[in-house]
Structures are given as structure tokens and as C-alpha cells.
Design a protein around this nucleic acid. Structure first.
Lengths: 218, 218
DNA sequence: CTTGTTATTCACCGCTCGGTGACAGATTGG
DNA sequence: CCAATCTGTCACCGAGCGGTGAATAACAAG
């Protein structure tokens, strides 16, 4: 156990606190968790080595050792992110029969809207993506869009968009709308004059979104 | 001219540079210009007192004196912003006859898309809006949305949206889509898998946007 | 010329940042 | 037992930040 004669060097106070166990794996996880938590809660603005180390309760040196600095840590977050879509968004049709491409896109829009609303980390990353163009952000962005594209492809099945519609461009618009409206709401509870506070407000937004989807895809 | 006996105090090098004239109004303008330029070119990340002072070529103390600090300076930018819409976006119908609400919204979408694409400062501010919720940003955001709403109201004339459509919610979606797609493109030349580099790419985006508008409003 | 007033600069403060080298304690292997 | 290795801590660096008090240079009025 703890040898009592270790008191030789103790300067003034007895550290009664539980000593951190020596466990690299656990520490790595703590760092990664702290990074994700910090990014989700505080945003990318004050995201730095010192803040993460503080949040993880360890020395920043360990971040350099285990992740090779902030870049490596962000990359680890990106890797984790790959499982976001599969974790947070259902992969089946929810018991519905998606008969048309319009059915599909309506459901995808709703799922994505809800998932993004529920995930602060993802929101912060999206905000980061449109605010900066660093190497870090590119990595995150790539991981995110790759996972998302895979999810859509999986859900699409054999459904094809109607002829005469540039589905890629239209869908980009729809997803852009969702992302921006969720970001704006998360910050200021409104977007372009539309209040987005309670569930009723979001119902209206969802209805409008569905109307847009149906307007294009029928 | 410059008195030669002034060399008494010169430490080592002769400042050949043109001496700044004493002119408060000009200095204030230089500060404001530097702030806008800096925000537009570098973004809100490295936007601070020191950077602005450097950019304006004066001491930061003057920013405190003339604007009461960064907050006041940002507020001044916001005031300036009020004239953005009226400056950058035409107020008439461009010679077209807007017969229906759909006509109106299609034209508004195109005008707003082009205007935002052409204005880096505005883009940075929008990105700022979805990234932070400080007092500064709120002020800017308010000024922007107010000007925008006024512009729309002016253009609307007597046209009314079709019954059975929540125009406010739908329009919020449309404007959200435009803002996000322009921001994303400005940073990474793409959005949700859709490449947005040259004019042809933007043509596709514009077409998709028009299709969405027409799908809802006919 | 003197005396204020105004515009502008300078020097300095405390703080946080990212980054690094050296060290201490635990664990493992011979 | 000693030596090497691994985990974790600490102290320190230079740089940049926001912010402030005091000095300085130009101009105006008397």
C-alpha cells in the first residue's frame, strides 16, 4: 500500500485525493472524451491544448505523447465521428414503406433534422466547417460527409430520383437548409425571422421542409 | 520643411515615411475600413483590437478612444451594414413583371444568392452568427436581419403567398439553404457532395433552387 | 511665445496560449 | 537487486492577447 514514510517529501498538505491510476488506455479515452465534450459544449473557438488538458484532468504533455498534438486529437475525433451516423440515425425505414424517391427524401430530411438537433458536437463541427479552412477542419469535414453519404446510399436502396430533376443539387440545397436552420436555432433560437424555440415551432419548420421536398419530388 | 536639427532625438534610423496627418475623421474611417477588411478577409477568428490597430496603421488606444473598444467598433460595422442590402441588392424588379408570389421568391432567391456570393464580409458575419452567441454577434445579426426583412418587404409589394403554405417557414428554409450553401462553398468549394467551383456549378445550384421555389409556390 | 486642447504614440501590465525539456514515480525485465 | 521503460507532472519559454496610464507631437487661441 501507500508507504507512510513517503511523508518525507510532502511539503505542507497531505493529498488525500485518490491517486490517478497509471493507465494509458484510460487516459487516452479521458482525453478524447474531454475533447469531444469541450468541442460540443464550448465550440471550436476556445478549443485548444490547454483547455483539453484541463478538461481531461491531466497534463497537456500527454496529449502530445498520445495523439501527437491537437491535430492528431482532432483526427481521432473524426475517426470516432464515422460511427455517428450509424449510431444516431436509424438505418431502416422505421417500418414505413418507402415507395417513391419523394418518400425517401422526406424521411431522410426528418431523420437528419432530428439527429442534428440532438447532437451538439455535430452542430459545432458543422459550424466549424463553414468558418475555417484549416487542415483539422478538412479532416473532420471529410469524415462527416463520407459517413453521411454512405448512410444516404444505404437508405436509398433501389429508388431513383425522377427524371428531369438534378437530385444531387436539390438534395444539397435541402441538407444545406437543414444544417443552417439547426445551427442558427442552436445559437439564437431563430432563423431568418422564424422563431425556433419550442416543439411547436419545430413542427412548423418540419412541415415546411416536407412541403419543399414534396414540391420537388412529388 | 523638416528641420535638420530635429536629428537630436532620432535614435538610429531616419523615418522617411510620410508622416500621418492629424485628422480624427480620417483615422476613424481608417479604423472602420481596416476592421471591415480584416473581418472579410481573415474572418472573425483572429479579429481583435491588436489586429485592427495593425491593419489601420495606428495605435489600438485610438480604437478605445473613438469607438469605445471592439464592441463599439463592431456596432459601427453593424450600422454600416444597414446599407448593405440597399447597396448590393437592386430594389426594383429588374424590368420583370412579378405576377405571382412564386415569381417574387424566385427573383429574391437569385438576388440574395448572388449578393451573398459577392460579399465576403457578409459571409463572414453569417458564419459568425452561427458560431457564437456574444453580444457583438447579436448586434450584427440584428442589423443584418432587419435590413434584409425590410428589403423583402419592399420587394413584396402587394403580392401574397398562396393559401395553405406557411410562407414564413418555407422562406426561412430557402434563405437558410442559400446561406449555408454559399458559406460552405466559400470555404471548401462544395456543399454536401455538390461541387461549387465554376459558374457552371453555380448554374446547377441556381436551377435547383428555382425548382425548389417553384415546387412550393408554383 | 505661452497655454491649453486634441490627436497620436509608447511603455508596460497580467494573462493565456502552444510548446518543450527535465524530472518523479510506478512497472517490468533481467 | 539494478536498470530500463512507461506514465504522468512540473517548471519554464517566447509570443500574443486585451487593456491602461502616461508621455509626446501637432495645432488653436490668447
Amino acid at each position: 500500500m501507500a508507504p507512510a514514510n513517503a511523508a518525507v517529501k510532502i511539503p505542507v498538505e497531505m493529498p488525500v485525493v485518490e491517486k490517478r491510476v497509471r493507465n494509458r488506455a484510460a487516459t487516452e479515452q479521458a482525453i478524447l472524451d474531454a475533447a469531444k465534450r469541450l468541442l460540443a459544449e464550448e465550440g471550436f473557438q476556445n478549443f485548444g491544448i490547454n483547455a483539453v488538458a484541463r478538461g481531461a484532468g491531466c497534463d497537456k504533455q500527454l496529449i502530445y505523447r498520445y495523439y501527437g498534438g491537437l491535430n492528431g486529437l482532432v483526427e481521432a475525433i473524426g475517426t470516432d465521428l464515422g460511427s455517428w451516423v450509424t449510431d444516431r440515425i436509424p438505418d431502416d425505414t422505421g417500418g414505413m414503406f418507402l415507395l417513391t424517391y419523394g418518400d425517401l427524401m422526406e424521411r431522410l430530411s426528418m431523420l437528419f433534422l432530428d439527429a442534428l438537433r440532438a447532437d451538439p458536437l455535430m452542430r459545432r463541427i458543422v459550424a466549424w466547417e463553414v468558418s475555417e479552412n484549416s487542415e483539422q477542419v478538412r479532416r473532420l469535414s471529410e469524415a462527416r460527409s463520407k459517413a453521411l453519404a454512405g448512410w444516404i446510399e444505404r437508405m436509398r436502396g433501389s429508388l431513383v430520383p425522377p427524371k428531369g430533376v438534378d437530385a444531387q443539387a436539390v438534395n444539397a440545397m435541402i441538407f444545406a437548409a437543414i444544417q443552417h436552420i439547426v445551427l442558427a436555432a442552436a445559437v439564437s433560437d431563430q432563423c431568418a425571422g422564424l422563431v425556433l424555440k419550442n416543439g411547436k415551432d419545430w413542427e412548423k419548420a418540419a412541415t415546411a421542409l416536407k412541403r419543399i421536398v414534396r414540391g420537388v419530388y412529388g
